[in-house]
Amino acid sequence: MTPLLTTKGLSRHFGGLRAVDGVDFTLMPGEIRAIIGPNGAGKTTFVSLLSGRIRPSSGMVVFDGADITAMPAYKRVRLGVAYTFQITSVFANLTAFDNVALPVQRTLTDGRTKGQVRSGVMAALERTGLAERAGTLAGQLSYGHQRLLEVAMGLALKPRLLILDEPTQGLADSEIDNFITLVREIARDAAVLLIEHNMPVVMQLAGRITVFNSGKILAEGTPGEIRANAEVQDAYLGAAHG
């Protein structure tokens, strides 16, 4: 099987700081991959390079066999790379419906789906359990619902790769359970790349885990392997779990 996404020597420097430093990374279609690592390890910067929000200092990004290193972000989205922000950034002054309508109508003009905006929006809202809130202004939704709306917007893009940056941050435990079900469902049609601090979520969801530290990949493997890895224990798990 050909990989869905690969990076070669991908780097991004901020002044003297090497936020992402020569990363070689491979993701297969249909995979659920978690990225973990301490704060400031470069996880957000790394996925921003994948989504095109920021430009790399060097290295390349290949998606589905095509070099997309120089491609602007909006074109990558149209190819199927969807990104949800770490900091919730739904359109606060628009209704939940309009928030989701934006990605839905986008895929309609791409010709990736047929049908009406309304049915597409309602489908995405129903999958995330927000259908009853369609008419509410996004800014008036609870924080957990805003995170879900963010996911609904990602879903509505019909992505082939969905990147979620700390999606469970601030969610209640009950909401997290629903979220796990949702991600499993999404993964039937798309690969999921998940930055996550909540280890139980990571262990339940991820097929493989990539550990970042100081802009580099420290380790990669199945949840079992990562759990057993002493280096990871030192760098991250030890710190996180005391």
């Binding site: 929000r53 989205v77 990605p103 917007m153 893009l157």
Partner: peptide, 10 residues
């Protein structure tokens, strides 16, 4: 910024 990330050439 968000609009771009929904695939729009703003």
């Amino acid at each position: 910024e968000r609009t771009k990330m929904l695939g729009y050439d703003t």
